[in-house]
Each structure stands twice: as structure tokens, then as C-alpha cells.
């Protein structure tokens, strides 16, 4: 069975091709490409990725305009059906703005755009995205963002921590995120949002391949499911 993944491109997305390459490398099948103005997604998708970038020029708030684009209504329907959705960087911002993940991503505490490899700790190695890692494993994945400062109120933070929904934590907080949170999964477990870019760590020429396990594991768990 061939793995059917779709990568959504918004005006201003700039990691969509990298995401498609990473998915193809993990699955062997080319990823389908979807435009933000499409009202429908291709049928029988196994996986949907929202890439990084600056959708709609970050107008209003990062991800706010994209969260209200036509394709997002189709994505909400797929999330409800249990289809896995990965949002990286701007994709994470879009998922929070769309209400598919709790919290919000604010301007980095330093005010600076940060662009460098960071170390992450795998906090929950049981999600379909992270079970290719060991619990507590340290991995190196690049970040590249201005608005990656994860915020949620204390009750929400306690709840997602209690439910084991923190997927990744920074070992050294680079952006002011509450409780060093770098990535979280949804209540249903089928949506992962993360600021670091796993698709930029899938080839030795990238400087590291720690991101590949995420894509390979998603493919393995979905194809054998």
C-alpha cells in the first residue's frame, strides 16, 4: 500500500518543498501538494503536513489568516476523522490559531529571530509521531522562528502535561516558551505541532538526521495500521 501524504502550501510558505522531500524520503512515495485555496483535500490521505514559512506575511498574527483559509475547513474534518496532521513552525502556529492545539505562539522573549540547531528531549515516545524515538532521548533539530514562545494558562499547561501531551521540550529554553515546550500533541493524539524543523534534519548534508525518525515512524505506524 502506498503512503498518501499531502503538504499544504499557503502564500508565504517556504518549507513546503523540504517537507515533501522528507515525507518522500521516509515513505518512498511522492507527497501530494495542496494549495490553501482548495476547498477539498485529496481522498484517502494517510498524513497531512502544514509546513513552515510566513503564511500571508504573518498579517494580524502568525498563522491567523491561514487558520481561516478554505483548506483548513477540510483539514478540521480530516482531524476529526483521525487523520494525522503535523504542523511545523508556522504550521504549529496555524494549528493553535485554528484551535486544533491549545495555547498560542508569541514573539520570542529575546525579540530576536533565532535560527540554529537546538537540543530537544523526547518527552512522550508513545505518539504515532514520536514512537521511533526512545523516551527521554536527546535529539538535535534546527529552529528558525521569531514567534515560537509557547504560551498557555497554567491550568492548560497542567492538563497537557498530565495527559502526556508534551512531545518535545528544549533542553535549553531558546525562546521563552512556558515549561520549555517545543511541541505538543492533541487530545486525540493525531495532531502534532512543533516549532523545530524535523524536515531540516533528514540528510547528512543538513548536518544531522535526527528528524528522519519522526517521518519514518509515522509512515511505519500508518502503513502497518
Amino acid at each position: 500500500m502506498s503512503f498518501r501524504a499531502a503538504v499544504v502550501t499557503f502564500p508565504g510558505s517556504n518549507c513546503d518543498r523540504d517537507m515533501a522531500v522528507a515525507l518522500e524520503r521516509a515513505s518512498g512515495a511522492p507527497a501530494l501538494r495542496v494549495w490553501h485555496g482548495d476547498a477539498d483535500l485529496p481522498e484517502r490521505l494517510d498524513f497531512i503536513a502544514l509546513p513552515g514559512g510566513f503564511s500571508y506575511g504573518d498579517y494580524l498574527r502568525s498563522g491567523a489568516m491561514a487558520a481561516n483559509s478554505p483548506i483548513m475547513r477540510a483539514i478540521v474534518r480530516e482531524v476529526e476523522r483521525g487523520v494525522p496532521v503535523l504542523g511545523v513552525c508556522n504550521g504549529f502556529q496555524i494549528l493553535t490559531e485554528a484551535g486544533l492545539l491549545p495555547g498560542a505562539l508569541m514573539r520570542n522573549a529575546s525579540q530576536n529571530f533565532i535560527c540554529r540547531p537546538v537540543e530537544l528531549r523526547v518527552e512522550n515516545a508513545s505518539s504515532l509521531f514520536t514512537s521511533g524515538y526512545e523516551q527521554g532521548q536527546l535529539i538535535e533539530i534546527p529552529v528558525a522562528h521569531h514567534d515560537g514562545n509557547y504560551f498557555a494558562d497554567q491550568d492548560t499547561l497542567d492538563r497537557i502535561e498530565g495527559e502526556g501531551r508534551v512531545a518535545f521540550r528544549y533542553t535549553a529554553n531558546c525562546n521563552g516558551s512556558q515549561r520549555d515546550i517545543a511541541g505538543i500533541v492533541s487530545e486525540g493524539g493525531n495532531v502534532l505541532g512543533m516549532m523545530p524543523h524535523p524536515e531540516r534534519a533528514v540528510d547528512p548534508a543538513h548536518g544531522g538526521t535526527d528528524g528522519l525518525a519522526l517521518f519514518k515512524n509515522a509512515v511505519r505506524s500508518l502503513v502497518t495500521a
Binding site: 494580524l60 498574527r61 491567523a64 495555547g103 498560542a104 508569541m106 498557555a152 494558562d153
Partner: peptide, 9 residues
């Protein structure tokens, strides 16, 4: 509520 403000923050 839906667009102009993000009521989380």
C-alpha cells in the same frame, strides 16, 4: 473572538 483577537493571550 474568531479573528481579530486571539483570546488565549
Amino acid at each position: 473572538e474568531k479573528l481579530l483577537a486571539n483570546t488565549v493571550i
